[in-house]
């Protein structure tokens, strides 16, 4: 690692390309699995025409969106209309730069970290960057010069603002326990504690995930794009690649929320009960499992829950959603924060 060109340019570039490709691929296939799993939940078959068992469907979808006509409404605010999708997709992808997919390992004698960077304010960075995404939604909705888009954009703004608060509070409980803002350190703290944080922080875990669903505008909180009320909400007027950006951002955000939940509450790349069952994980039959596999497995479980929600719940009404955020989640997460704080004080940081 002596050569700074390699250390600061070549390696990060390779990592960026790999992470971006992986995220985009996961997002694309998430849409495929969503359609498939939802179909099975609803006694249908789902996409099965493109490629073997429909496996190439996401590729076909992406190609279709790429070549589709890009329609800009005549009276749209052109620049802002263009800016909207960019503002949505960029933060969604940027967040992945600090997510640790696994611990450092040796490759050809070099130490490789399977994440782009480990900043000491990682979680703050994520909360800050991901909040920018809502500008894309609001601006896109406003610039479309369409009432349905506008309404969808406004709803999204209200939703995001309401759910940031309990989400942030539930993240703080983890910070109390881990005593660090760095995502890598949070995972390592869970290893030291010997227990994933979702056990002491079960309430925070639950609130975090529900807020995550709300923040990604997913069912049952998919009000900004509620088809039956607002046609397609903020992206009603978007088509072609611009629409694809919104689409990509939505799925990438789901991966983000799932990844953060994995890191904060499910011990990131750690196997279950890393200390207690350490002997088991060291067995030759299991030792070959790379830590990153655990990470992906947990993330996939969250993504599955997203789809499961969609198959199970009707959509909430806007005021019901607001009530839930302000009257239930915020008080509960405040009380929970105090309880966890007290616990940390009495037992000592785990």
């Amino acid at each position: 690692m002596a050569n700074p060109w390699v250390a600061f340019l070549l390696v990060p570039l390779i990592k960026i390309v790999v992470i971006l490709l992986a995220v985009i691929l996961i997002a694309a296939y998430m849409s495929f699995f969503e359609r498939k799993i939802l179909a099975y939940m609803q006694i249908r078959i789902g996409p099965n025409r493109v490629g073997p068992r429909g496996w190439l469907q996401p590729i076909a979808d992406a190609l279709k969106l790429l070549v589709k006509e890009d329609i800009v409404p005549a009276r749209a605010e052109k620049f802002v209309y263009f800016l909207g999708p960019v503002l949505v997709v960029a933060p969604a992808l940027l967040v992945f730069s600090v997510i640790p997919f696994g611990p450092a390992f040796k490759l050809f004698g070099y130490e490789v970290t399977p994440y782009l960077t480990d900043v000491n304010i990682g979680i703050l960075f994520i909360l800050g960057v991901s909040s920018v995404g809502v500008y894309g939604v609001i601006l896109g909705g406003w610039a479309s010069n369409n009432k349905f888009s506008m309404m969808g954009g406004l709803r999204s703004a209200a939703q995001l603002v309401s759910y940031e608060v309990p989400m942030g509070l539930s993240v703080v409980t983890v910070l109390l326990m881990a005593n660090s803002l760095s995502l890598v350190k949070i995972v390592e703290a869970q290893k030291q504690a010997g227990v994933w944080y979702f056990i002491p922080g079960i309430v925070a875990f639950f609130i975090y995930f529900v807020c995550g669903v709300a923040e990604t505008n997913r069912n049952p909180f998919d009000l900004p794009e509620a088809e039956s009320e607002l046609v397609a909400g903020f992206h009603t007027e978007y088509s072609g690649m611009k629409f694809a950006f919104y689409f990509l951002a939505e799925y990438a955000n789901m991966v983000v929320v799932s990844s953060i939940a994995t890191v904060l509450f499910l011990g990131g790349w750690l196997p279950p009960f890393p200390n207690w069952l350490a002997a088991v994980w060291a067995l030759p039959a299991l030792a070959w499992i790379p830590p990153i596999a655990w990470f992906v497995l947990k993330m996939a479980a969250f993504l599955f829950v997203y789809i499961w929600f969609r198959g199970t719940f009707p959509r909430y009404r806007f005021d019901q959603l607001m009530d839930l955020g302000w009257k239930v989640f915020i008080p509960v997460s405040l009380v929970n924060l105090m309880a966890v704080g007290l616990g940390v004080l009495l037992i000592g940081g785990k």
């Binding site: 609803q42 249908r44 509620a226 039956s228 719940f313 009707p314």
Partner: peptide, 11 residues
């Protein structure tokens, strides 16, 4: 379906 509950629709 109107309430965003497509499972009922399919069933």
């Amino acid at each position: 379906h109107i309430l965003g509950f497509d499972t009922v629709l399919m069933q």
